[in-house]
């Protein structure tokens, strides 16, 4: 089934870079003003019981649910598989993930990266968006983090994505 949105495909392929650029500009501007950070939210709450940044992240989860729910009522064809766990089963992968692995593998794919992203980013002092915003504020360390993400995306596509699937099948998570 092909999902159908508000714009027809011929227009949407031109609208993608424009709309996402506008969205990015708005998010970047407000993220700089507010110091928005997901890792920082959990860290500040744990260390100082500050809820300011954490409220931003919790609001994001709730607002995205509200937003998807709203547009699911307005234009159901665009919200394919909404309420994912209910429509597609517990812990199944969202499209785009490599196929041929058992649900347990996708669960491991969630918790192991989560733990290490938490550990690494709290050491760096910010999650990926905070690093990107700090890079635009003139922080050279954060700029190197961003360069690392850019090089990392080529490394991932070229080698790591295939290697991870082969490894998981090797240790018995294939279907």
């Amino acid at each position: 089934m092909v999902a159908v949105g508000i714009l027809p495909k011929d227009i949407a392929i031109y609208a993608v870079p424009v709309v996402t650029l506008m969205l990015g500009l708005l998010i970047g501007y407000l993220a700089q003003r507010s110091g928005y950070c997901s890792i920082g939210g959990f860290r500040d709450f744990y260390l100082f019981r500050h809820t300011r940044l954490l409220s931003g992240y919790i609001t994001l989860i709730l607002a995205s649910f509200a937003g998807y729910l709203l547009f699911w009522f307005i234009i159901p064809s665009a919200m394919e598989g909404f309420l994912w766990a209910n429509t597609n089963g517990l812990f199944t992968a969202i499209p785009g993930a490599p196929g041929g692995l058992s649900p347990a593998a996708y669960f491991l794919f969630a918790i192991i990266p989560g733990l290490f992203i938490g550990l690494i980013c709290v050491y760096l002092g910010g999650c990926p968006i905070r690093q990107t915003v700090m890079a635009s504020e003139g922080n050279y360390k954060a700029a190197w983090f961003f360069v690392g993400m850019c090089i990392g995306s080529i490394i991932f596509a070229a080698w790591v994505s295939g290697a991870v699937v082969v490894l998981m099948k090797l240790i018995g998570f294939g279907v």
Binding site: I94, I112, F116, Y123, G152, I155
Partner: peptide
């Protein structure tokens, strides 16, 4: 760290 975080994030999706 940027390289590693991206690999981890992409594995999760």
């Amino acid at each position: 760290a940027g390289v590693i975080v991206l690999q981890l994030a992409m594995i999760f999706g």
